[in-house]
């Protein structure tokens, strides 16, 4: 049941940028344009390399296919890529929440899912056919650290129970073998 759309992994890119205005922004375009999800940027302005470049560490999430395209695009844009690799594998979990999803403060729900474990909500789709005050449903895609899907789901169950939301869990196979 694996499909490449779901194989989202976390990667760390180490870049060395020329110390010129706009360089940081220029380096992020190839990432966004190729479907990478930016997680964090560590811009070491005070730590210039011997060649006068500024090291930047960028954490992103992408499928392996997209990650390859991102690295190619960075090279094409003459951005100096020092290191490109997987920092940790992550597993994509898709869940659906249903009920008073909006009235129970969706952004709070999302924040708490992210806070409760090593998880990032990477996509949200909402369906509220009866208007926002009535029953609505939200599909969330969550990137969880490898091996942590069980604890991430546990956290989601807690939030859903507290807010009286119906949770449709994915079928996970973690721990089968």
């Amino acid at each position: 049941m694996s499909d490449s759309q779901n194989d989202i992994r976390a990667y760390t890119l180490r870049l060395e940028l020329v110390d010129e205005p706009g360089e940081l922004l220029r380096s992020l375009h190839p990432i966004a344009d190729n479907g990478g999800n930016l997680l964090s940027i560590f811009h070491e302005r005070g730590n210039v390399t011997p060649r006068g470049h500024i090291p930047v560490e960028v954490d992103i999430e992408a499928t392996p296919d997209r990650f390859e395209k991102i690295v190619d695009a960075l090279h094409e844009a003459d951005i100096n890529v020092v290191q490109a690799g997987t920092e940790r594998y992550s597993e994509a979990l898709t869940i659906v929440l249903s009920g008073h999803v909006i009235e129970t403060d969706l952004s709070d729900t999302l924040e708490r899912i992210q806070a409760s474990a090593n998880a990032t909500v990477t996509d949200v789709s909402l369906s509220a056919p009866e208007g926002t005050a009535d029953t609505s449903s939200a599909r969330l895609q969550i990137a969880a650290e490898s091996g942590a899907t069980g604890s991430v789901l546990e956290g989601v169950r807690e939030v859903a129970a507290e807010k009286d939301l119906r949770l449709i869990e994915p079928l996970t196979t973690e721990g089968d073998r």
């Binding site: 898709t94 659906v96 249903s98 789709s125 369906s127 449903s137 599909r139 895609q141 449709i168």
Partner: peptide, 14 residues
């Protein structure tokens, strides 16, 4: 179970 749940699942190939 609301139809919107199945709809959101379907949009995602599920």
């Amino acid at each position: 179970i609301p139809g919107s749940v199945l709809e959101l699942a379907r949009e995602d190939g599920r």
